[in-house]
Amino acid sequence: MKGLTFDIAHLLAGGLVLISFMMLYQDRLFALINVFALHALVLALSVGWQAYIQNAHHLYVTAAIALLFKAIVIPIGLHRIILRLGIHRDIETAVGIGPTMLAGIGLVTLSMVLMLRVTATADALAREDLAFALSIILLGLLVMVTRRNAVSQVVGFMSLENGLVLAATGAKGMPLVVEISVAFSILIAFIVVGVFLFRIRERFDSVDVRALDDHRGERR
């Protein structure tokens, strides 16, 4: 278990956290989506590696879904949507890059301290995976709250889901039902969001979520 296999798993999971950080400072939509595709690719490698070392063949399916669907189909689809909507301009981040990066570092520290402490009895690989997974989830959340643009919020959400997949594969022998459901929920989420994006575009000529905030929750 120890040795090279562990190091590679560690490298891939750590790589995911790093790529989550890269998402934080992308200020163009296309760049953000490319980074997300990279995120999904590394996820696919990581899950594939887990499948190999755990000898769990069903995880190859999860890896394949991550590779085909999240690393290829979704980024291409989002590229098209952005072109069609004509919003391939700068992302208006709600918070500056400096504070966002600092907040990201804080969140990663938090998840390391928390998860490594509470999983002291679990096996080393699962511990690392859970700690990295929580970091990715929190960083995904941070991407969502620091962006105003609907497309980048969706990207943030999908990177958050990648963290969940990492956690689910790290938990040894977790039944297939969850992996399928995660993949499935991403599919549904994408369809729903796609529908919404088009409707929002139809109505307001903008996918800037700020346009939705005019209403401020109360009719006058």
Partner: peptide, 9 residues
């Protein structure tokens, strides 16, 4: 879901 995974763990 993350909580569910932790319960499994």
């Amino acid at each position: 879901l993350f909580g569910t995974i932790l319960v499994y763990m």
